[in-house]
Amino acid sequence: MFDHRRIAIVINSLAGGGAEKVMLTLAQEFIKLGHEAHFFVLQNNGEYQVPTHIPLHVCFEKGAKGLDSVFKVKLNARSLKNTIDAVQHEIGKFDLFLSNLDTSNQLMTRTGLSPLYCVVHNSVEQELIRQKKLGPIAYFKMWRAKHCLSGQRLITVSKGIKKEIEQVGRIQPKSVQTIYNPFDVNDIKSQSEKVNTSIPSEEYLIHVGRVAKQKRHDILFQALKEMESNIKLVLLCNNPKKALKLAKKHGVSDRIILPGFQANPYQWIKRARALVLSSDYEGLPTVIIEALICGTPVISTNCPHGPSEILTGDLAENLAPVQDPKSLATKIDNLLKKPKVTIDAELCKRIEAEEIAKQYLSLK
């Protein structure tokens, strides 16, 4: 269907977040389909491991600071281009560049490399609102990161992000289209069935995600305290110490189980009574879809963007208002009285990795 294509995926690091997982899934699917995918990480740190059959290129030293600072961005963009050009000189030209996350976007949009698409994984406006609360310097840094997307070809991971960009008009992209995140449905199901003796035998809720303000662990812990049920909560996160400190602050540390980051979270998700998302904003929260694939019900804040695109029909009743722990607690209590559900077959078709990879391969 497609001629052999060589794709460069550029991303900040291999931190244990959704964007990194999405791009690793996509890269593996490109290779399955007979194409070539290379990973360019600005810095080689984080929890994820790149499979040995995917070439990994590290662009800057691990301790390098301020790669996208006003004074360094042009120099670092030139250095990144030189790294990519050296690889192209050795293996041939890349047919497609996919840039992910703010720092990579600020550098890649200055390299002149083409065809370049910047993948927008999160709500632009919500990120700006968050940084504005931290002061003018933080806001200016975020504004710079988003402003570089003007004049670029953008891929948004949800229709909500695309609609926001078009309606607000802060960014003036060359083009913008939505491609959902890819999921290897069969692999997720297979991984979820594997035995793990460290998983609790008692019923538990689960939250998967880094400990960051956006994820609103404070709201999650307040909801836990408001609940009628005394069910425990498993947190799969990259910073257990920080999560435990916050749980103690809200008086729920005795309800928290902290196994740390898990390379295979699906075993934990499948055996959970429900997955809970408490975020202020998202792009397309992969954990919601992964939970539904595993047959685990989901309670989520109806945040911009993504949850309302996934939890549709009867599942929409599991959406709670943002920053409302009482409502979140009530939704969880009500859900615990119901049987588990399975993912909608139509959604499965739309997010299957092969279908998503083909959409990316059609980009020119």
Score class of each variant (00 low, 15 high):
A272K: 02
D324Q: 14
D280W: 06
I188K: 07
R78M: 13
S279H: 10
P51Q: 05
V298W: 07
Q323R: 15
K225I: 05
L233I: 11
Q126T: 00
R216V: 00
T103F: 03
I188G: 04
I11Y: 00
L233W: 11
A329M: 12
A27L: 02
E20G: 04
S362K: 09
Y180R: 05
S192I: 04
M1I: 01
E127I: 15
I31M: 00
P136V: 14
S279W: 09
S175H: 08
E354H: 07
Q131L: 11
Y266N: 05
T178I: 06
Q88H: 01
G306M: 12
V58E: 12
V10E: 00
F140A: 12
A212V: 12
L233C: 09
E90H: 08
F60S: 15
E166A: 09
M23S: 15
A247Y: 05
V70I: 15
G160W: 14
K364E: 04
V50Y: 00
F94D: 01
M1F: 00
K189M: 15
I256E: 08
I231M: 06
Y281E: 03
S229N: 09
P307N: 09
I310G: 01
R6C: 01
Q172G: 00
Q214S: 10
I84E: 04
L96N: 03
I310S: 04
Q167F: 10
L224V: 10
P307C: 09
G92P: 10
V157I: 14
F60C: 13
Q28M: 09
T330D: 12
G160T: 12
V50L: 02
R255W: 07
L233K: 09
I11T: 03
I129A: 15
S279A: 14
F30R: 04
E228C: 09
R78P: 03
K338D: 01
G135P: 02
N302Q: 10
P136G: 12
P339M: 11
